[in-house]
Each structure stands twice: as structure tokens, then as C-alpha cells.
Simulated assay, not measured.
Amino acid sequence: MPLILLSGYPSSGKTHRARQLLDFFDTKIASNSSSPSPDPRIARLKTHHISDQSLGIPRDVYRDSRTEKDARAAEYSAVKRVLGRDDIVVADGPNYIKGFRYQLFCEAKALGTPSCVVHIGTPVTTCREINSRLLASPETDGGYPDDIFENLVFRYEEPNGMTRWDSPLFTVLYNDDAPPLEAIWEAMVGKEGEVKVVKPNAATVLKPAAESNYLYELDKTTQNILTSVLEWQKDHPGEGGGEISVPDVRAQKIEMPASPLSLPQLQRLRRQFIALNRQHTLSQSRIRDLFVDYLNDNFG
């Protein structure tokens, strides 16, 4: 069943909102079971709460890029382990990197189950005050060390409801006494008598690679497109925006962002795309179409 990703600044109240969601969903499931004509689809649902605390991840892992990467991998594996058609997963982690949210979105879509993002819209000044209180209180598990807190705030990539992986997007303000719990339930589970169905697409359905040279074509095709982007930037120094035509891709062009892109940025996107599609069976033309679409999503 659904994947609900919480996202927000450190010490913004994500865990508090996660517990509200879990309590509300558990109540809805129990209420259905006690009704005269229970919906068997809802009766099968189970809720799961995945957080740094439940995974035993200390906050100081975010001081180092290697340990932070391991922490994200642990959350990703935990979500993937329990995510299914009869499971509601609340991922209560930092989830501040849009590429990581995209990965989890693809996992949900591959299973044909809906996902959403709940953005905890607490102002950074309030988060800083809360974090300071948590650090000073011996009765809590503590806040984030000041240097880690400021670094996470600086690197936070706010969810954008215009992108597929951050949609639908629900924003919950710090002082909101009535968060949209019912709306989230309806978006994820559906109204009474309605079944939420998500159709997997070619970019997310994993199939064994049938062609012996598939990985070579995946690597070569994506590298050629990156070369086109770099050559365009070289021919248009300092220019923001613009469109790049890719040979044999008629449906759309690469829409360049306002700021120039570095080679490491482009290579990172290419590696992410290859990791997501290395087990697929895609033709060369399909690789081109999907990679252009993937770049546009990340450039937007």
C-alpha cells in the first residue's frame, strides 16, 4: 500500500506528525474492522514507522558524507523490505535530497502503489530553537549538533509539488492543529468504495536484461547525451536556459536550467539513472527518451 515520505528541516516536528498519521491510520483500519460490513481491502492494511531512531541511526552520521550515504541506504532498504500492497509505510527521515525521494517514488510506483510527500513547514528559526532545547534536555534523545543542524538546513531541497515524485504534496505548518490527515488517507487509500491503483511505467518496472550489450548501450547512450549538454554549454557560455535537441528524440528537448551545470553534477545524474535502469529491458531509443525526461525532471 502507500508510501508516505515526511520531509522537513531537522527538529521540525517530523516524528510528531508521523505519530499523528500512524494513530489516524490505525484508527481508520480498526474502525473498518468493527463496522457491520468491513472493507476487506482496508482490513488487510498494516502500518509501519521507519525512522532514524527505529533503525538505530545516530545523528552524527550526517557529519560525514560516507556515513550519511550508509544511513540513506539503511532507510531505503528498510522501506523496500516492508513496502507492499497491504502495507502503509511512513518514512520519517530527513528525506531532504530530491534524488533520494525520487528513488523511493520509483520503488512505490514499481509496486503499483501510491506515494505522497508530507512537508513539515516549520520555519528554520523555530527549528533552531527546538533543536537547542532538545540538546539541553536530558529527558530527550537530544537534537542535532549545531554544525550538523546548520549543514542539513543549508543542503535541504524543499519538495516541489510540480514534480512527479513530490506529488501529491501536503504541507503541514508548525502550529497547524488540524493537519490534513483525512485528505492524506483519501489520496493514499481512497474514499469508501474507491481503490487507488498506480500503473507502473517502463522506467520503474524491473525486468531481466535480455540483450547482452544492454549495459554497454545504456552507458554509451547516456554519455552521448551528456556530451551534447556539455558541448551546448561550451558554445553558449554564461547563458541561462535554452533547449537542446537530441538526435532521434522527437517528443521533447532537454530544457536547460538557469544556471550552468558542472560535469560532476551531470555525471551524478547519469549514475543515478543507470542505477535505476540497469535491470530493465529498454531499447536504445527508449533509453534516450527516458534519460531526457529524467534530466528535465531534475533540472526543473
Score class of each variant (00 low, 15 high):
S12L: 05
G56M: 11
P138W: 07
D146I: 02
F100T: 04
Q284P: 03
F273G: 05
D39V: 08
T27D: 15
Q20Y: 06
A203G: 15
D248Q: 13
S37M: 10
E68W: 00
P38R: 09
L226H: 04
V153S: 01
P260F: 08
A108M: 10
R278A: 07
A202V: 12
L152N: 07
V246T: 00
N175G: 04
T126L: 13
H48A: 15
E107F: 04
L295E: 05
S11H: 06
A91V: 11
G8N: 10
S7Q: 01
S259P: 00
P40D: 10
T122D: 03
E194M: 13
D166A: 09
L104N: 00
Q223K: 03
L282M: 04
L111S: 00
S33R: 15
D86E: 15
T113E: 10
E139F: 11
T222Q: 01
A251I: 14
H48R: 13
Y9S: 05
I50C: 14
L230F: 02
R133C: 05
F154L: 05
D147P: 01
T125K: 14
A251Y: 06
L295C: 00
D147Q: 03
P58Q: 06
P145Y: 04
G121R: 09
K46E: 13
V229C: 08
K109A: 00
A209R: 09
L169C: 09
G8P: 08
